[in-house]
Amino acid sequence: MTPQTQTEVAAELVNVRRVYQMGSTEVAALDGITHQFGRGEYWSIMGSSGSGKSTLLNILGCIDRPTEGEYLVGGSPVSTLDDDQLSELRGARLGFVFQSYNLIPQLDVLENILVPVMYRDEWPAWALDRAKDLAERVGLGGRTGHRPPELSGGQQQRVAIARALINDPDLILADEATGNLDSKTAEEILEVFDELHAEGKTILLVTHERSIGLRAELTMKLVDGRIDEVVENRSS
């Protein structure tokens, strides 16, 4: 089922299960997922509501752990890492883009972009310039001093993307990143993802919208916590 690629593996799932205990019954949100995401690939993860997309993305993003099976980022198994090491890994190698932007309201644009840098052991010399470049790049160069409530949804999501990129992550994880946006703004955001893909970033985009899913290079379809199919989309 996994497409044969010559590229390096960015993230690998080996027979991953994620079981929620609901009273006496168990609900398997993920039920035996084995898959490799290659470096530089652009994936959409699709499925109906409740099929396990978010659960999968949380495990890929190391904010949740599999109940069974193993998840490896860049070759190293996550189960061997403690909480602090996981935090470090999230900050340094993963970039999150959420449906509801999730900016920190008391910080301005530039500070929000720099949050992942603040949790590094040292403050790198490039951080400020890079944050300004990224703000410029997502079209918010003139608004670095604004706070999130003063920005539109599309602008906030651009800040979130810039924030996801600040530490130059191995994986960009987006859960319904355009879910709260109108179609025109969503299109602009998706264009940013296209650009990032063109630059060689690995992107995993969760969506339930077919039209959006088709923009990715590859699509994984989930049904009831299992991989239903993996398709390679015709690029236009």
Binding site: S87, E88, G91, V115
Partner: peptide, 14 residues
Amino acid sequence: EIGIRRALGAKRKD
């Protein structure tokens, strides 16, 4: 906010 910070690399200590 705590969830966001944790996702972005904040340790418990932070």
